[in-house]
Amino acid sequence: METRRWLYLILLVLMMMARGEGQLVENFYGSTCPKVEDIVSETVRTKIKQTNVTIPATLRLFFHDCFVEGCDASVLIASANGDAEKDAEDNLSLAGDGFDTVVRAKQALEKECPGVVSCADILALATRDVVFQAGGPRYQVELGRRDGLVSQKSRVAGNLPEAKFDLDQLNSIFSSNNLSQIDMIALSGAHTVGFSHCKQFANRLYSFTPSSPVDPSMDSNYASEIMLSCPQNVDPSVAVNMDPLTPVVFDNVYYQNLLAGKGLFTSDQVLFTDPASRPTVNDFASNPNNFNEAFKTAMTKLGRVGVKTGTEGEIRKDCTSFNPAR
């Protein structure tokens, strides 16, 4: 019986290792780079003073990184051939301010403790800091990720949630990353900050169905307002705020907007229109503390997805390029 119990424990550990989970710890750099969190926080504060775009740009960069290859900073790699992860169509709209935030923090950390802190951990910390500095909850970040060695444009398609997804499609792609429906709804709350280009939701305004060009789940006044900013055949660079009320504040107004039919994407509004997810939206809309706690839990779980630890991967010297082969 004792032997069987030990075999079970060993198997459990191996399974956790296979998933890339269970190996991150808070204060990972306590003895090797004790000022890491202060340095990243200061970089984020400086960057936000220059532009509020830093907030949604960094958040979105973290999500896109973790959903492809895991949280390993593979999305940061720049390729002269245009075949890296960031070159995929789904990533072309990632704002440069997110990348710049990580690069600046890395440069500062290389002066303080060269070759110690991974770009993947910097991105995770910077994401926590933009949320907090925008008024959202502060949470402890597990650390110890290493930077990935693969970044390919071809691996992106099909691995990111899309604006037209329904609830089943959302749950499917999130569950493939060990994230529950509640996690998915909480992480969707990140749309309380930031903006989107018109083409991502134009179908809800002009071609939803032959009999109803405007999505009937969208508030009619809200639809009219969005049409003014996003007329048909608008310049592709035009964008509108995801949250029309508090676009630079991290709060639970996103969920209140869904109750009012003011979700920008189909994948936003469906969280309220689908009875399976509506109770959670109602809860988060009326209880900001419940949203904050769920978001903290979901971000911690997201930060464990596909991580490289130990001797896997590397600690890049430059976040935008792999280390030279030895």
Rank of each mutant, 00 (worst) to 15 (best):
E2M: 09
L7E: 15
I10A: 14
M15F: 14
M17E: 14
R19A: 14
E26F: 12
N27L: 07
N27F: 11
N27W: 09
C33Q: 10
P34M: 01
K35N: 09
E37L: 13
I39F: 04
V40G: 01
T43E: 03
R45P: 08
K49C: 11
T54I: 09
I55A: 03
I55K: 06
F62N: 02
H64A: 10
C66S: 11
G70T: 02
S74P: 02
V75P: 00
D83Q: 15
E85Y: 08
E85I: 09
D87P: 10
A88D: 02
D90N: 06
N91H: 02
N91F: 06
L94D: 03
L94S: 03
L94C: 07
D97I: 13
D100N: 15
V102I: 03
V102D: 00
V102F: 01
V102K: 04
V103Y: 05
R104Q: 15
Q107A: 11
E110A: 03
K111D: 15
K111R: 14
E112D: 15
C113S: 01
C113T: 00
P114S: 09
V117S: 00
A120F: 02
D121P: 05
I122P: 00
L125F: 06
L125E: 04
R128M: 05
G135Y: 07
E142P: 05
L149I: 08
Q152G: 09
R155H: 14
V156F: 02
A157W: 11
A157Q: 06
N159A: 10
A163V: 15
K164N: 12
F165I: 10
F165Q: 03
D168W: 05
Q169L: 08
S172V: 12
F174W: 06
S176K: 15
N178P: 11
L179I: 05
L179S: 04
Q181K: 13
Q181F: 12
D183Y: 12
M184N: 07
I185C: 04
I185D: 02
A186G: 06
G189P: 03
T192Y: 01
T192K: 07
G194W: 07
H197T: 07
Q200N: 14
A202D: 15
N203I: 09
N203T: 13
R204V: 01
S207A: 14
F208A: 05
T209I: 06
P213R: 02
P213H: 11
V214A: 10
M218L: 14
S220P: 11
S220H: 04
N221A: 13
A223T: 00
A223Q: 05
M227L: 11
L228D: 11
C230D: 01
V234C: 09
P236I: 12
A239D: 14
A239Q: 12
V240C: 09
M242W: 13
T246K: 08
T246F: 05
P247G: 14
V248T: 15
F250M: 10
Y255K: 10
Y255N: 08
Q256D: 05
L259N: 08
G261Q: 05
L264F: 07
L264T: 08
V270H: 01
F284S: 01
S286R: 10
P288N: 04
P288M: 13
P288F: 08
F291G: 03
T300W: 14
R304Y: 14
V305W: 04
G313W: 00
E314T: 08
T320V: 13
T320P: 08
F322C: 10
P324A: 09
P324K: 02
R326Y: 12
R326C: 15
